[in-house]
């Protein structure tokens, strides 16, 4: 870890800890979970060069699985989330196996097609999933601790969320992560060096699905509710939007993107009749203004501010 990474880590954890005090807890929870979801998309898109337009499948599969497990067996929520991760990864393996055989827009279409399929399947399995009513009354359980208030759940779930972020960080900064980026940049060359590139892409896909599944599990349990919206294609779209907005290939850009989108939606929903249009316009402006996303721009701004601060201090001492 470089000093910059440590500084980012401290800032990130600090923000995560105070978030429910600054905002209201439900919004804070939404932000950190969508941030984790966006990070899972960035792992594939920013580091593997694979644009998944069907990540709602893993977020939703995790959410439904965790909700059903928690409800049926009265499981503590971390165990239910583990189940959600397992289901999401088990689903990601065959979808990824087929999707990685295609590139670019075709890859996106294959992932979208499978996500849509899952949406209809879950809708049809009414006995299990409740169809359009969803899974309601999902209990939030942690032995010995009351999770009645949303802020309680936020702090109970935060360690799992941070582990999710850490796993993504670990993957990106591993030998595997380096090979993955090489495949993104020049797949033929990586093959010529002897790398079985399909295997790397599939592993990345399954890991990304698992992280999305973790985020989705906590989202469903946190809301005590798993609904079809988890699996809707607009959910996939939002995750991609947050990633691109924050900056691909940065990991923490996903967090920035999630925060901006959700804060905009939240603050605008109370002042205008058509929050979608205003949010959309602002997002278009950001995407056009910052081609590489907000995170690199924020990073540059921070570096400049730091340099100016040091220059001022040096000038004062001189």
């Amino acid at each position: 870890m470089t000093r910059r990474d440590i500084a980012l880590l401290v800032v990130g954890i600090g923000i995560a800890l105070v978030l429910p005090r600054v905002l209201y807890s439900a919004l804070a929870l939404r932000i950190v979970l969508w941030a984790l979801f966006a990070v899972s998309v960035d792992l594939l898109l920013g580091y593997g060069g694979m644009l998944s337009f069907g990540h709602a499948a893993f977020w939703g599969a995790g959410g439904y699985a965790a909700a059903l497990l928690a409800k049926a067996y009265q499981l503590p929520f971390p165990l239910a989330a583990l189940g959600g991760i397992a289901v999401a990864m088990a689903l990601a393996a065959p979808i990824g196996y087929l999707a990685i055989r295609r590139r670019g827009i075709y890859f996106a279409m294959v992932t979208l097609a499978f996500a849509q399929m899952l949406f209809y399947v879950v809708n049809e399995l009414r006995d299990l999933t409740g169809g359009e009513n969803g899974v309601q009354g999902v209990p939030k359980i942690l032995p010995g601790i009351s999770l009645g208030r949303t802020s309680d759940f936020y702090y109970a779930a935060l360690p799992l969320v941070l582990i999710g972020f850490f796993v993504a960080y670990r993957i990106v900064h591993s030998p595997f992560g380096h090979v993955l980026v090489s495949i993104r940049d020049n797949e033929a060359r990586a093959q010529a060096l002897g790398y079985p590139t399909q295997r790397y892409k599939l592993i990345a896909f399954v890991l990304s699905g698992g992280i999305a599944g973790l985020a989705g599990s906590l989202f469903a349990i946190g809301n005590s509710f798993a609904s079809l919206e988890l699996l809707h294609w607009t959910t996939s779209g939002s995750a991609v939007l947050m990633t691109v907005l924050g900056g691909m290939g940065t990991l923490w850009g996903g967090g920035v993107g999630a925060a901006i989108v959700l804060l905009l939606e939240d603050s605008l929903s109370s002042v205008t009749e058509a929050p979608g249009i205003v949010t959309g316009a602002i997002l278009i402006a950001i995407v056009l203004g910052f081609r590489r996303g907000l995170a690199p721009a924020l990073h540059t701004a921070a570096v400049l501010a730091w340099a100016r601060l040091r220059a001022m201090r040096a000038a004062r001492e001189a």
Binding site: R170, V179, D185, L193, G194
Partner: peptide, 30 residues
């Protein structure tokens, strides 16, 4: 046909560890 933003050294290191199982370790530090 190269990885444009990697250093020459990183290129060769990448080629050298291709047969090492550590290449697939996504949990190991770089």
């Amino acid at each position: 046909s190269l990885f444009d933003r990697r250093t020459a050294l990183e290129h060769v290191v990448l080629a050298l560890h291709v047969a090492d199982p550590v290449s697939l370790h996504f949990w190991t530090p770089e």
